[in-house]
Write a protein that binds this DNA or RNA. Sequence first.
DNA 1: TTTAATAATGACATATATGTCATTATATTT
DNA 2: AAATATAATGACATATATGTCATTATTAAA
Lengths: 73, 73
Amino acid sequence: MGGRLRNEELLQKISTQLKHLRDIKGLSQEDVYNDTGIHISRIETSKVNITVSTLESLCSYFGISIYTFFKDF
Amino acid sequence: MGGRLRNEELLQKISTQLKHLRDIKGLSQEDVYNDTGIHISRIETSKVNITVSTLESLCSYFGISIYTFFKDF
DNA sequence: TTTAATAATGACATATATGTCATTATATTT
DNA sequence: AAATATAATGACATATATGTCATTATTAAA
């Protein structure tokens, strides 16, 4: 079952948003991994359907609330 | 490995919020299942760490954006 | 261009989210 | 209380998110 289109859009938006946050902070994927233990590559390339828990950890790391994260969703 | 406390709080908030939305709409868990294919019981009892995709589906079903869902987070 | 840094991809193991169904518990209604 | 409706729990299978590492690709720096 290929993922529904709607879902792909969601994952795409999440990817873009996370990449943007990482760019703003000037951090490499390795930095994120060293600091959080989260491999962000697969998330930024929309390979996986992130759990809310993982997303919250990343938001916290980037210094924003999960509410703010979804502002443009 | 018991989940970290922070994470439990997050799951608890999500549970409460979803239950609240379902109550407002006057829907049973079975209704939600029949309409979405999602078994919400385990989510409302904080047994699982929901994926963003599943959460978005539920928000959509309840008629709110995922952004609105996280307003009080 | 060569080198170095960063990112993407693939493979594998493990943990767990989800789908499904049956059973038990609780709540509501009569 | 008995009957009915709803929710919680447990078990199991399957799909997949995540952890980990190695390799390849891409980008940036020299």
